[in-house]
Amino acid sequence: MKDLLNKIRTEIETFNTDATAQVESGNKAAGTRARKASLNLEKLLKEFRKASVEASKK
């Protein structure tokens, strides 16, 4: 679960960096990277939810 949390943190940092670059300087490529990171985050958060539910059942 710690590994999953580290992946989520990394993806959030990537998203923040790219989304900020898109908003502040109009960087279209950064916008594409931010959207990709948001999709990856969605998958990781679903994995976290499953792991969290399993851990709470123990």
Rank of each mutant, 00 (worst) to 15 (best):
residue 1 M to N: 01
residue 2 K to M: 01
residue 2 K to D: 05
residue 2 K to V: 02
residue 3 D to Y: 04
residue 4 L to D: 02
residue 5 L to Y: 09
residue 6 N to H: 06
residue 6 N to V: 04
residue 7 K to Q: 12
residue 7 K to W: 04
residue 7 K to D: 12
residue 7 K to F: 03
residue 8 I to A: 05
residue 8 I to P: 02
residue 8 I to Q: 04
residue 9 R to L: 07
residue 10 T to R: 07
residue 11 E to V: 07
residue 12 I to K: 10
residue 13 E to W: 06
residue 14 T to L: 10
residue 15 F to C: 01
residue 16 N to A: 03
residue 17 T to G: 01
residue 18 D to T: 01
residue 19 A to Q: 06
residue 20 T to W: 02
residue 21 A to G: 00
residue 21 A to D: 05
residue 21 A to W: 00
residue 21 A to Y: 01
residue 22 Q to H: 02
residue 22 Q to E: 05
residue 25 S to F: 06
residue 27 N to L: 03
residue 28 K to C: 02
residue 29 A to M: 05
residue 29 A to C: 02
residue 30 A to N: 10
residue 30 A to C: 10
residue 31 G to M: 06
residue 31 G to T: 09
residue 32 T to G: 12
residue 32 T to S: 11
residue 33 R to S: 15
residue 34 A to Q: 11
residue 34 A to D: 12
residue 35 R to S: 14
residue 36 K to S: 14
residue 37 A to G: 10
residue 37 A to P: 08
residue 37 A to K: 11
residue 38 S to N: 13
residue 38 S to P: 03
residue 39 L to M: 15
residue 39 L to T: 14
residue 40 N to L: 09
residue 41 L to E: 13
residue 41 L to S: 12
residue 42 E to F: 13
residue 43 K to N: 13
residue 45 L to D: 07
residue 45 L to M: 14
residue 45 L to H: 04
residue 46 K to A: 15
residue 47 E to S: 12
residue 49 R to E: 13
residue 50 K to F: 11
residue 50 K to R: 10
residue 51 A to W: 07
residue 54 E to F: 06
residue 55 A to G: 06
residue 55 A to L: 10
residue 56 S to M: 13
residue 56 S to Q: 13
residue 56 S to N: 14
residue 56 S to K: 12
